[in-house]
């Protein structure tokens, strides 16, 4: 199991190296670039394996999970554009139509990477900003236009569009 985490970390680092150095075209020294990248990535992932907590990189990979993750990214990109148009409307309106407040909602995701993705997605979507996330799954969200304080409505509006995808992708 330790070897699997090591290999995942190694391949993530190697993809970053390949994007940064771009050793794909016919240029002099292409083999040296790949060799140096593999050596450096192996060494760094060996060093980082003791620091990174074990279960945060331990996610199962399968094509079905990848499919749900891509669905999540499409939904996220769509909502991000909507969010920016919403903020642009509120900023350019002469009366500043805001109605802010901090609300509380509970999430059911267990995986740390899934929770990180959920918090980042909530921060970049319409009118919401995660202020704090506790260990037992409570999210405190600053909302620029509070339409209700019922927990069901809050959950259906903010959390659920991402949670249904992330639950299938990570848990």
């Amino acid at each position: 199991m330790c070897l699997k985490i090591y290999l995942k970390f190694f391949f993530i680092l190697l993809i970053c190296w390949a994007l940064l150095v771009w050793p794909f075209q016919d240029s002099p020294g292409i083999i040296e670039k790949w060799l140096l990248g593999i050596l450096v990535c192996a060494f760094i992932s060996y060093l980082e394996l003791r620091n990174v907590s074990k279960n945060s990189l331990h996610f199962p990979l399968s094509p079905l999970r990848l499919y749900w993750f891509i669905r999540f990214i499409i939904k996220f990109a769509y909502l991000m554009v909507i969010a920016n148009l919403d903020v642009a409307y509120r900023v350019m309106h002469p009366d500043l139509p805001i109605n802010p407040g901090i609300v509380m909602v509970k999430t059911e995701l267990k995986h740390p990477l899934g929770r990180l993705m959920l918090a980042n997605a909530i921060t970049l979507t319409p009118g919401t900003l995660v202020v704090e996330m506790t260990d037992d799954g409570y999210l405190f969200i600053h909302w620029i236009n509070v339409i209700s304080k019922e927990e069901n409505i809050i959950k259906k509006t903010i959390v659920l569009p991402f949670e249904i995808y992330l639950k299938k992708a990570f848990d």
């Binding site: 109605n99 802010p100 407040g101 901090i102 509380m104 704090e132 405190f140 509070v146």
Partner: peptide, 8 residues
């Protein structure tokens, strides 16, 4: 001032 609620 014009905030609605503050659970935090």
């Amino acid at each position: 001032k014009n905030s609605v609620c503050d659970y935090y």
